[in-house]
């Protein structure tokens, strides 16, 4: 486990409730300095509540959030000098233009780099004279990113920053992000639906599902252990069942199709696959690596309710 000096973000048993509904349930994770942590989850999974707690904007119902080893609820003011934030909904005062916003921030951060902000805004092509409220959603996001990076934050929190952005804007955002990381080694926590965008950036991935952190893993390890296996099955007599041939794997998702079986496994290794391929009845077995998006869909793609509603597929059904 990393020490507080090495840890940028730490959540300990974080729980957020709104009345009787629970947004986050007992979430614990830590993000090392310099890491790019992608927090994934479907809408309503609890990402935004978690981020608000992480930024000291909301008090968790239970547990606590630490930034750089310090409680963020009680020490928010001091900690925010080290944090840059791009919120899900750009929330800057609508009557102010980008330069006025930058000027406002300049008064609050001792290390504010006005030139860098202006350069970045120019690079984005944002009209700095237009009031924030009149900017397009993409421009708003770019302004917020420029403001978030203006003081050289040690931690950058991006809450679904690409939501509503077009392809060009997304690209610009990620380029800047990569540049920032390369220059300063900033820790990044990003919640997003744009999984392809962060594919090459994220060093660690967490998946929130119905308020619970169901996955928290190094991105490379994650991608190396998840595989899609497709094969024909000559053992089972019915299409709705499959046999014990997948027992060596932890099958996250299995679908029986006309041509055979399509399974996502979360503990893939070559040796097990060789054994699987040589199993009686398994024909034309293929294995394919998975993108982050595919892994996310496999892990978080169905809610408990949706899953319960589906017709269960019996493992080891009648032969």
């Amino acid at each position: 486990m990393s020490t507080p000096q090495e840890t940028a973000v730490s959540l300990e048993g974080l729980t957020v409730r709104y009345g009787k509904s629970t947004a986050c349930e007992d979430v614990s994770l830590s993000i090392a300095r310099g890491a790019v942590y992608a927090l994934l989850g479907r809408n309503g999974a609890g990402k935004s509540s978690l981020v608000r707690c992480l930024l000291g904007q909301q008090k968790p119902s239970a547990g606590r959030a630490l930034l750089f080893g310090r409680g963020v609820w009680s020490e928010r003011t001091a900690l925010m000098a080290r944090v840059g934030v791009v919120p899900e909904e750009p929330d800057a005062p609508p009557a102010m233009n980008a330069l006025q916003l930058s000027d406002f921030c300049r008064r609050l951060y001792p290390r504010w780099n006005q030139k860098e902000v202006e350069d970045r805004l120019a690079r984005f092509g944002v009209s700095v004279r237009n009031s924030f409220g009149r900017l397009s959603k993409g421009e708003k996001g770019e302004v917020m990113l420029a403001l978030a990076l203006g003081h050289g934050p040690e931690l950058l929190v991006l809450d679904d920053p690409t939501l509503g952005l077009d392809l060009v804007a997304r690209k610009a955002l990620y380029e800047d992000l990569v540049g920032e990381l390369a220059d300063r080694g900033t820790t990044v926590l990003i919640t997003t639906h744009d999984l392809s965008g962060i594919e090459g950036i994220a060093t660690r991935v967490g998946i929130l599902k119905e308020g619970r952190l169901v996955l928290d893993e190094d991105a490379e390890t994650l991608k190396s252990r998840f595989r899609r296996i497709r094969y024909g099955n000559q053992i089972t007599e019915t299409r709705s069942a499959y046999g014990t041939e997948l027992d060596a794997f932890e099958a996250v998702k299995v679908k029986v199709r006309g041509w055979g079986v399509d399974a996502v496994v979360s503990n893939y290794n070559d040796l097990s696959f060789e054994r699987f391929r040589s199993t009686d009845g398994v024909v034309d077995a293929e294995v394919a690596p998975m993108s982050l998006e595919e892994i996310f869909l496999a892990v978080a793609g169905e809610s408990s309710a949706e899953k319960a509603a589906e017709t269960p597929i019996a493992k080891g059904g009648p032969r």
């Binding site: 930024l55 904007q57 928010r76 003011t77 925010m80 934030v85 909904e89 929330d91 800057a92 951060y109």
Partner: peptide, 13 residues
């Protein structure tokens, strides 16, 4: 409407 988050995300008490 949570727009106050802009201020709470700054080093402002």
């Amino acid at each position: 409407d949570r727009r106050i988050g802009f201020f709470f995300a700054r080093p402002l008490s």
